[in-house]
Design a binder for these strands. Structure first.
Lengths: 244, 244
DNA sequence: CAAAGAATATGACGACCGTCATATTGGGGG
DNA sequence: CCCCCAATATGACGGTCGTCATATTCTTTG
């Protein structure tokens, strides 16, 4: 994958999203922005911006990699493939979010696959450079506890939904979760600025593409949601909430 | 609940399990045993052993408590109740395991309900005493990162199962997970020393009691498992594995 | 020991949704 | 512009398992 224009300037002639700078990525990370300026400079200097296209695999489950990632622009999903060949998305990482750091900290490598949801930029932070900094930084450890706790909490919520909710409830719940993190209100419209296919949604909801399409199609006909190529818009929050 | 004999001596006249000592509980915790001897003594001195009976609630979701728990003897399950009134167990804490500490660390209180699976002893550790010790202890923070990461990993595994596996596969998977943590090999028998009802299993497998009973009943008829009042025994690992 | 309650067992029925198939639409590339 | 592929839409069918009901067994309590 030839790197596109990474000068930080939006190039209207190019289809690629403009690359953020390494410093921008690190400063946008609410986990890593607790590093000192010197440490941020050191990490930025040793890191590399990488570009991935939609669907591209960053690493596979069980791979050994010498870096962890920070999403700069776009989204990365953490997935597991079942014995039956079905993909399950356990987490979606958006801009500023770190992925793969825990594997570095506990030496377990890559317990899940990391794959780009859309064309994205991410920062590859070398473990070799980062881990000594991590070892000396108590505040970063505290932040990591909090971040990991938050992720555990979200996992518990997902478990609860998967255990008992009907598919439509699960999908509504996912839309609200996405709106919480990546939604923008625009009048009566709640615009989820994540470019997700029905396949992506189905992997998060523990169902099949066909079922996801059916539910979303019905909601579109009812005027409850609207989808465009890069967004999902919640038009009737009340109706979706009432499903829960 | 009147505290039973807590002298540390097994009383054959009593139906209550014998109480461990506070020091035993702390030393058995692979998270808390990284404290210094002085800190362990301080924590033990300020803590109280508590006894709960089967089904008893230690705290409800949303409660505010001034302690976290360490299981001494028995098991505690962390549950959420759905809008439809169904209980979902996200985690099972056994002897030596800490519950509620993350709520203390991040100030979120009790995001889940803690309930005794069987008659159990646990240590109530006052947050007021513990948190200053925690703040000064980098090794404990590192251990907590690891522990929380491990729990997050296990949650991802559960999510994967719930997303796509059939009920029998889910139950088999849960039996193996339990055997991993709490199983003892005895010849060809893998004895899971956790006293779980079909209700408990169903809450962990995201299904109903009736369905759990059907599956387990069938496996008993096939000679694959055997259940007694306090244990589940895997008799045919191969057959259960083949379901996965 | 007897009674009560909890846990387990089982049957009947139907709803949810997965599977398989086919058609249509939308987006990207040449 | 055309072609190809991916994404979405929809139908038919059937399997899994949830729901409701009832019976039996086991455990606990007085």
């Amino acid at each position: 994958m030839a790197p596109p224009n990474s000068s930080g300037v939006d190039n209207p002639m190019s289809e690629f999203p403009s690359a953020p700078t390494k410093l921008q990525v690190l400063r946008a990370s609410n986990l890593l922005n607790s590093l000192t300026e010197d440490q941020i400079s050191e990490v930025a200097g040793a890191s590399h911006l990488a570009y991935v296209e939609r669907g591209e695999i960053i690493w596979l489950t069980g791979n050994t990699v010498d870096f962890f990632g920070v999403v700069g622009l776009g989204f990365v999903k953490m997935t597991t493939t079942t014995a039956a060949g079905q993909d399950v998305t356990t987490e979606l990482m958006g801009p500023g979010q770190v992925f793969g750091l825990l594997g570095a900290v506990d030496g377990s490598g890559c317990p899940q696959c990391a794959r780009a949801v859309c064309n994205s930029w991410y920062l590859k932070v070398p473990k070799r450079i980062f881990m000594p900094i991590f070892q000396e930084n108590v505040v970063l450890k505290e932040h990591l506890i909090r971040r990991t706790t938050n992720r555990l909490r979200n996992s518990h919520k997902l478990i609860t939904r998967l255990s008992s909710a009907k598919v439509d409830q699960r999908l509504a719940s996912i839309l609200f979760m996405l709106a919480d993190s990546y939604g923008v209100s625009d009048g009566n419209r709640l615009v989820i600025q994540v470019p997700l296919t029905r396949q992506d949604l189905s992997e998060m909801a523990g169902t099949t593409v066909e079922t996801t399409i059916r539910v979303m199609s019905q909601w579109q006909k009812l005027g409850w949601v609207e989808t465009q190529s890069k967004t999902i818009v919640i038009l009737n929050e009340g109706a979706l909430s009432a499903l829960l």
